[in-house]
């Protein structure tokens, strides 16, 4: 870990000014990922601007009937918030599927969006990695890539976004409120993270100095017809090999509308609206679910160690949709897959 300076910002404007004016400065909130990356010498900010004192800790109702979640709301508080549990159980479930209780206590809403890939090569400075060091190459493509992406990959990068929470936020069509040196803006969740393309060093579309100040949820929908199904290499405290956030609006025995987002398979939470559209007006049957999975996974490509993810993702989509249709969401504390 390199030496760095540390300052604590008292206002959002002050924090943004401090970071925007210094290319070597970074915001720090929970630090559950950034501190690790600094210890590994992967990220070397010379200046940390601590934003944990900023007034971004509220969960507030919006005029549109949704919730505005301050960027500094800890993951635990969000998951156990009564309104979230009642109206957005899919989000609560996804959060509780991730990390450990201790990490969820420290990790923040904004930080969860901004956590970086867990590709093994990104963390090891002795190896080539285009995300860490653009132009150095991607060792994961021919290396240990069990955890890597099967969708939306590029020649330069096959990293995944590791978040569980973001998969639910993608399915729920949240928006991200950002403030920066050039003023505030609001992004649809799908436009927040990006695919690696030829610039995998950029995980998302934030400019330097821009800060996530809130995540907004639209008015609740989907009732009990949702689930977050996470498949991983042990039953707790592991990143998803494949995860599925599914939410359905049912019309009798048929499906009126579907939302399906995948985690662990791409550089961003993976949503394919055409795949969701396949289910419109269809009965909730394994055949319908399989047809949707085919569209969602079209073009999936393995790199050897992660080939299995294509079939696993297909089965996970089918099961998750069955859970959602039955109104029997996956329980995160019981490791039996229902």
């Amino acid at each position: 870990m390199m030496n760095f300076s540390y300052t604590r910002a008292e206002t959002v404007a002050e924090a943004i000014a401090a970071v925007a004016g210094d290319p070597a400065a970074r915001f720090i909130a929970g630090g559950t990922n950034l501190v690790d990356l600094m210890k590994y010498d992967v990220m070397k900010p010379e200046r940390l601007v601590d934003i944990t004192r900023l007034p971004l800790r509220e969960i507030e109702a919006t005029d549109a009937g949704g919730l505005r979640i301050g960027a500094l709301v800890p993951n635990s508080d969000l998951a156990y918030d009564a309104r979230v549990q009642r109206d957005y159980p899919l989000l609560a479930s996804a959060i509780l599927a991730g990390a450990s209780a201790q990490l969820r206590n420290a990790a923040t809403t904004g930080g969860n969006l901004l956590q970086r890939t867990r590709c093994y090569y990104f963390y090891d400075v002795a190896t080539p990695c285009n995300k860490r060091e653009p132009g150095s190459g991607c060792a994961a493509k021919t290396g240990v890539n069990r955890v890597n992406a099967i969708l939306g990959t590029s020649e330069a990068c096959i990293a995944t976004h590791p978040s569980d929470m973001c998969v639910a936020l993608a399915a729920l069509e949240a928006t991200v409120h950002v403030e920066g040196p050039n003023g505030p803006r609001v992004l649809p969740f799908a436009e927040f993270h990006r695919l690696p393309g030829d610039a995998p060093q950029h995980d998302n579309t934030l400019a330097h100095g821009e800060m996530v100040v809130a995540v907004e949820l639209p008015a609740p929908r989907f009732g009990r017809n949702h689930t977050y199904l996470k498949l991983r290499d042990r039953l707790s405290y592991a990143f998803a090999l494949v995860s599925v956030a599914a939410a359905l609006e049912m019309d009798g025995e048929g499906i009126a509308e579907a939302r399906i987002a995948l985690g662990g398979v791409a550089h961003k939470p993976w949503r394919v609206p055409d795949g969701e559209a396949v289910l419109k007006g269809k009965p909730a049957t394994p055949d319908s679910f399989g047809a949707a999975a085919d569209v969602i996974l079209a073009g999936a490509k393995g790199y050897g160690g992660n080939d299995f993810k294509i079939e696993l993702a297909r089965r996970a989509i089918v099961r998750a949709l069955a859970q959602a249709a039955a109104g029997e969401p996956q329980v995160q504390s019981d490791k039996t897959v229902n």
Binding site: Y121, G143, R234, S236
Partner: peptide, 19 residues
């Protein structure tokens, strides 16, 4: 190719969790 351990940490070298 690199002859290097890639999961040299307790996050990615999996031992059983309580669950």
């Amino acid at each position: 190719t690199l002859g290097r351990v890639m999961n040299a940490n307790l996050g990615e070298y999996h031992v059983p969790a309580h669950a």
